[in-house]
Amino acid sequence: PIEDLFTNLNRHIERSEFEQAVKVADQVLSVAPNDEDAIRCKVVALIKCDSIDKALSTIHSAQRQNLPFDFSYFKAYCLYRQNKLDEALESLKGLERTSETMLLESQILFRLGKMDACVDVYQKLQKSKIDTLEINLVAGLILAGKSSQ
């Protein structure tokens, strides 16, 4: 039964056995091809194994099937990892501005060299409680030539 597969999947996730997690997610998808949890687990596990290409192709095939799930954040992250920065920003556009979307946006802007915009997003993010944010903020400020602030 599918519950046993999810129990197995959950165990692999807890043990950080991400390649195994991908295999079990695929087993779920072979019996329930549109299962959102299984697709999400597969995409996240692929990202955690650094298989960014495969994560993106999994997202694309879900999109081709017109599944009603929003993979925009994962997609934006994968595109960022592939240095497809404009496409990554595009994928973030429709999403609500939360600390996680703003964090990714700021990293993309940093790589694009858009330091003023990057610093701007960081300053909004400072209200949230992301511990190591200052490290990125300092980097952005240095490159923006604002190290005196």
Partner: peptide, 21 residues
């Protein structure tokens, strides 16, 4: 060059499977 940590990576999370097991 300053290093930008990939903090967004930490936001990539598995869904809760609690109700699926």
């Amino acid at each position: 060059n300053p290093i930008v940590l990939d903090l967004a990576y930490n936001c990539i999370d598995f869904p809760s499977l609690e109700n699926r097991m």
